[in-house]
Design a protein around this nucleic acid. Sequence first.
DNA 1: ACATTAAGTGATT
DNA 2: AATCACTTAATGT
Length: 205
Amino acid sequence: MHLLQQLFEPELYTQFVEAARLTKYKEGETIMQLGQRIDRIPIVKSGAIRVMRKSDNGENLLLYFLEVADTCSVTLKCCTGGKNSDIIAVAETDVEVYMLPSELMNVWLQEYYTWREYILNSYSQRIEELLHAIDVLTFQQLDERLWQLLKDKAIFKGQSVLNITHQELAENLHTNRVVVSRLLKKFELNGKVKLGRNSVDVLYL
DNA sequence: ACATTAAGTGATT
DNA sequence: AATCACTTAATGT
């Protein structure tokens, strides 16, 4: 049984599956650039999405990941009122996403207890993740952040070998490519990773 | 063979 | 930890 089916009361789940459009994205595909109006709310059925903040110079700072049954209602709502603050969502793995017409969001808030629970939870969860992101950004050492990122990516992918460049990792962490290269080199000397061109093999998770 | 891109390195701030 | 300048290595045409 799918996690969403456990979360929603039966009647809601039936309606949900009927009203939502299931969309699939391949790994690396851009799912949405925020800044434009969105009329559908994404809810992850399978896979993972990474949500990033695009900085002025076009680099993508990683904010958080969306996993199974997660939704991005927060990001959508607060960014539609919008500035040109660009938030971008990219498929971290191959991913299936339910796209729910946003009108239903409000209707169901009144009608279904489990929907209210779900949306409220997702809000608080999202806020916690953002707070966590700030903590990490201000207090955690770069080498710890890099290591954590590698582990996350390996776990989402379900395998230890990541096909990624040092440049991309650097952008996710909002740092410099040279710094990442050096840290990775250090990890390799410690036996934590095995490096190759366009690849990082995360040895112990 | 040449151009392009990824990654390694030393020196400086 | 960031930036610069340069080298080396891998890959595409």
